[in-house]
Simulated scan of single mutants.
Amino acid sequence: MEIRHATAPDSVETATTAELRDRYLVTDLFVPGEVRGVYTHEDRMVVAGATPLEEPLAIPAWEALGTDAHLSRRELGVVNLGEPGDVIVDGSAHKLGTLDGLYAGRGSHVLLGGEGACYLLVSAPADAVHPTARFSRDSVEPLPLGDGDRASRRDLYRYVWGGGHPSCRLQFGVTVVREGSVWNTMPPHLHDRRTEIYLYTGLSPDDRVIHLLGRPGATRHLLVADRQAVISPAWSVHAGAGTGPYAFVWAMAGENTDYGDLQVVPLEQL
């Protein structure tokens, strides 16, 4: 597990491109037969990747958490980026297709199986136990957002978001950008009370998402490839545009689970 410390907003303005990538971009989560993770002190979230082969993978009890199991004091969100696989929670198997999700509560025992499956894991501290739930992208009603003439049409699939299935601090879901659109949100916005982690998926090897970060009026950017993630602190704007078709998994944790608790940033403030 890699550990990343919280950062101050003014540090972005003077950072080199390499420093920005080291602090906020996660590039190597998915290695066959392994579970790899990053612990960020931004709201103490963990983002990890699990790529099983023939045998299911368990989430390690990483020393950074100080517990004998990953979910001893945490709750977990899982999204499958690859081929169908089984996530086994407390002995019960839940099949996840591409971009399907699963929530597992504090204290659960989780195994991740299915050769060809590729799981994104996000976890956050939890002080209560909530039940396991599976979310199918085919059955969750998407929230359509954006405008075609603004190149921002997208479908938002909310899995755990402050409405529907309960959680302590964690929210997560999937957004699919529609054909012909490029922006994942425009105008940008802030989540003053939450950290957000993005994982971009569905990009071809030659395509990138240009991800904007930083405070309004002092933004920088990252070029993000397929299956790479960005840690976005509470003080950073959220916006990005892709050079080709893509989707992204979003996960948040912080002060509340109110999905609508955000601050829109007018373009003139950038």
Rank of each mutant, 00 (worst) to 15 (best):
R169C: 08
V249C: 00
V26I: 15
R194N: 07
A234T: 10
D149V: 10
P166L: 14
T16N: 04
D207T: 12
D43A: 14
Y159G: 03
R21G: 02
E13F: 12
L25S: 09
L81H: 06
R150W: 07
A225P: 01
V209A: 05
Q228W: 01
D86Y: 07
L267C: 07
P144W: 11
E2C: 02
L20N: 07
R4H: 11
L222M: 01
P84C: 06
R208M: 06
R169T: 09
A126K: 02
G105D: 00
P32T: 11
A48T: 06
T175F: 05
Y103S: 00
Y39T: 05
G214D: 13
G82I: 13
C118L: 14
T201P: 00
L121G: 08
G162I: 07
N184S: 08
L267S: 01
Y119W: 10
A104M: 04
G97V: 03
W235F: 15
G97C: 03
H191S: 02
L143N: 13
P166N: 09
I197N: 00
C118S: 11
G180F: 07
L156Y: 13
T219F: 04
V35S: 03
L111M: 10
L29W: 13
P188D: 10
R44P: 00
W250E: 01
I210A: 13
G148V: 12
R4Y: 14
H70W: 15
E2L: 14
V26W: 10
P52K: 12
I210R: 12
G162D: 04
A218I: 04
D90P: 03
Y259M: 01
G33Q: 07
V176K: 04
H5I: 11
D261P: 00
Y103I: 03
V182L: 09
L96S: 02
V122D: 01
A218S: 12
Y200S: 05
S152A: 13
E19C: 05
Y159E: 08
P84E: 07
E63C: 01
A117S: 14
R21E: 15
L99S: 02
D207P: 00
S72C: 04
L156A: 10
D207G: 05
R220Q: 15
R4Q: 12
A247R: 05
P233G: 05
L81V: 10
D192Q: 02
V174H: 01
G146I: 13
L65I: 14
H221L: 14
D258H: 04
S232L: 15
R134A: 15
A61K: 04
P205K: 14
R215S: 15
G173T: 05
A124W: 03
A69T: 15
S72W: 04
D22T: 14
E55N: 14
R73C: 11
R21Y: 10
Y39E: 02
V237E: 01
T40Y: 09
R36S: 09
Y159M: 13
D127Q: 06
T175V: 15
P52C: 13
I210G: 03
T40E: 08
A15E: 08
L120W: 13
T219S: 06
T219G: 04
V89D: 04
R227H: 12
V35Q: 07
E63H: 13
Y259F: 15
E115V: 10
L96K: 01
V110D: 02
P245Y: 03
F30S: 03
L213I: 15
P125A: 08
G146V: 11
R4N: 09
